[in-house]
């Protein structure tokens, strides 16, 4: 168990800057999710933490020790790959024992620790099987057992749930989080899935184009996104962003009032007049697709309303959409950064 610190990390491949200056501190025992779209540099960052890549500039510190130029095997970092990377020529037991063997742990202790790790993950029955014949969920458990068998300083996960079926994934997410709460090992979890980041991370670092755009707890990120990228990335559907009043104005699809065009608007409300393009039934709510303006200046947004409200609406005609001004998020029109009203 240890802290992790990245100081001014850059990774350049020729002219391409995969990672372009990252400073990040992860506290001892913390679960940090790195969230970003593909190509944002999150995997490269993770590989530099594990030691599979060396930063072009900057330092990696694990437990206050500079490990920037140490090879992976000297870092005591446990990594779980997206593919689980199980060794196909070894049984499950041998897979789990491999990190211990590489460290010269004696056989008796090795067997005991493999048995314990297998028990923790509930895969004791699979120990003599070949990994080739396991299901996706079983493979993931074997990979996790192999990661936790050796008391690492740090866990690094590279989208470990993305190859699982949707049903298994929700279950695996909570298991993974419980595992972390039990072992209290500092964890860096890389994902492009905001549900995983929001659901599991103590804090989330949102990355784009090689930089960290915002670091904070899930609530902070959701409640006060630092820029339009974070605002438009979190939430499902994400925050609506509309150019108005010389700024970019953000509001969530929930809590929007809809009334007929021409209805007077109270002064503490922000109002947009827009045409309803389509209504979509989502079960407990309806999703409204609305367009303000026309041609190149057209701005689209989404609103969620209750079934009662929908009966009063008419597809194809203008309506007034209102949001309490206190719930607006304001961003600078040029930089996209959050501004206070």
């Amino acid at each position: 168990m240890a802290t992790l610190e990245l100081r001014g990390i850059h990774k350049h491949y020729g002219a391409a800057h995969a990672v372009d200056g990252i400073d990040l501190t992860v506290a001892d025992g913390e679960f940090l999710a790195i969230l970003g779209p593909s190509g944002c540099g999150k995997s490269t960052t993770m590989r530099m933490i594990a030691g599979l890549e060396t930063p072009t500039i900057g330092q990696v510190l694990i437990g206050d020790q500079d490990v920037t130029h140490l090879p992976p095997r000297a870092r005591n970092v446990s990594m779980v790959f997206q593919s689980y990377a199980l060794y196909p020529n070894m049984s499950v037991a041998k897979n789990i024992a491999f990190p211990l063997k590489a460290r010269g742990v004696p056989k008796a202790e090795r067997d005991a620790r493999v048995a314990k790790a297998a028990q923790t993950m509930g895969i004791t029955a699979l120990l003599e099987r070949s990994p080739v014949r396991l299901s996706g969920g079983e493979k993931q458990k074997v990979a996790l057992a192999r990661a936790l068998v050796r008391d690492p300083a740090l866990y690094v996960f590279d989208e470990p749930l993305s190859s699982l079926d949707a049903q298994v994934r929700a279950m695996a997410r909570s298991e993974l989080r419980q595992l972390h709460d039990r072992t209290k090992v500092t964890t860096v979890y890389v994902t492009h899935d905001q549900l995983e980041a929001l659901g599991m991370g103590d804090r989330i670092a949102v990355m784009k184009a090689g930089r960290v755009r915002q670091v904070g707890t899930p609530k902070e990120l959701y409640g006060a996104p630092a820029d339009t990228f974070v605002a438009g990335f979190l939430g499902s559907p994400p925050m609506n962003l509309i150019a108005a009043e010389g700024k970019i104005i953000g509001f969530r699809p929930e809590g929007i009032g809809v009334s007929r065009a021409g209805t007077p608007v109270a002064s503490d409300q922000f109002a947009v007049t827009a045409r309803i393009v389509e209504l979509e039934f989502l079960g407990s709510t309806w999703q409204i697709y609305a367009v303000q303006g026309a041609g190149e200046a057209a701005q689209k947004f989404i609103a969620h309303v209750s079934p009662q409200v929908v009966t009063t609406l008419e597809v194809g005609s203008d309506h007034v959409f209102t949001v309490p001004r206190a719930e607006l998020h304001l961003f600078d029109a040029k930089t996209g950064l959050r501004v206070t009203a």
Binding site: G51, L52, R73, M79, Q82, A85, N89, F98, A102
Partner: peptide, 23 residues
């Protein structure tokens, strides 16, 4: 051989000879 299996071996602490002969 998938690259991540060889990288996994590196992260798991295997040196060049262990990786060669066991993976």
């Amino acid at each position: 051989i998938p690259a991540d299996i060889l990288e996994q071996a590196q992260v798991d602490g295997a040196g060049i000879f262990r990786t060669l002969f066991q993976i």
